[in-house]
Design a protein around this nucleic acid. Structure first.
Lengths: 194, 194
DNA sequence: AGGGTTAGGAACCAATCGGTACAAAACACA
DNA sequence: TGTGTTTTGTACCGATTGGTTCCTAACCCT
């Protein structure tokens, strides 16, 4: 009954997310967004309301795509015991660092630091994602024999901060030298918890 | 022999640094900088070359003022053993979090994530600061009895990433709930090292 | 084939961006 | 009290920012 759109909103959103991920909110200009999404202004403002809206959508998209994947990995018994799964996640990060340096880092972590995201809806979304990660660590730890709830909680939080720290170092281009050592410390935290 | 300047370049630089610290490079507009520094454009461009230059100067200023202070604290035997000094540093961060939420975080950590600082002179300065911190942790650990060089190195790096992770959580407004648990994990790392 | 409806694209908008030019102002020295 | 020198403030600059308008193109349905 009307002209069909010539682009897939999902892949366009994905491209936008990647740009925000790389550059942050302010530094990702509308022109760069349009270029990355391969659409023009008309289509952009018709499909998404404005820059801020698509930023929020990008956060949701990251939650659905990346965080959910990470949580799933941490929850899947096929990936070993709770401790093994957590270590497996860090191993995957180390792999990414080895492969391409991981200069993108973690969108969640980057956005937590990005002042453009502070306050309002964005911050609430970010905090929710952090808690999802924390709880995924927590549950994985809790599954292992002999780990009490308080111990699992505090260990989860320690691992969470170690995780963000590692991603910061990755973005700074320093993780290649440091990742292995950092992960060995996480190994220790897991050992003392279980 | 000429008109004297009406402002102290050092305090103006300090104000500029604080704004970059809070907002990041892009988000700190020239207008906001001038307002924070309480000078006008003419004075600004005469005393500092341009925005990018004063950003680099701000990084140096942070290195001289904050990082040097932190390194000094970590090196001073009056603050206890190596492990005690490291824990003392985390305690000071926890205090800042308790007091005002620490929504500023750590300028070094924020700048590591800020894409505007990636590549070029800024990145080199940032990496140098990271290494200063790492070495301060390393030396503090090495002082304690029974800690080998390899153990001190990897522990220092693990603590470094935990430190950045904690500051990220602080900036996100989540550290109030999590700081104590995170620090307890650092305590464990220190215990196993020594 | 024609009408209804929506997407696409270019022209245009005010506001702001970082940066420059230049004249007035304020001092030190003679 | 000039005079030379530097700072200060303001007017101005082109480029870019995010956003709107509106016309045309492309499609579905009758």
């Amino acid at each position: 009954m009307a002209r069909p759109r010539e682009f897939d909103p999902e892949v366009a959103l994905d491209k936008a997310m990647t740009l925000f991920w790389d550059l942050g909110y302010e530094e990702a200009s509308l022109a760069e967004l349009l270029s990355a999404m391969e659409i023009t202004k008309g289509s952009f403002y018709k499909a998404f309301q404005d820059k801020h809206s698509i930023y929020l959508e990008s956060l949701d998209h990251y939650n659905d795509k990346v965080i959910s994947g990470t949580v799933a990995f941490l929850s899947d018994p096929e990936n070993g015991s709770g401790a093994e799964r957590i270590l497996g996640l860090f191993g995957k990060v180390a792999e990414a660092i080895d492969h391409d340096g991981d200069r993108l880092g973690c969108f969640l972590c980057n956005a937590l630091v990005d002042k453009a995201a502070a306050g309002g809806e964005a911050e609430a979304k970010l905090q929710a994602m952090v808690h999802r990660l924390e709880n995924a660590f927590f549950k994985a730890l809790l599954e292992d024999t002999g780990v009490s709830e308080p111990t699992a909680r505090e260990t989860a939080r320690g691992i969470l901060s170690a995780y963000f720290g590692l991603r910061v170092l990755g973005r700074a281009g320093l993780a290649k030298q440091m990742a292995d050592d950092c992960i060995r410390q996480v190994e220790w935290l897991l050992k003392k918890a279980g």
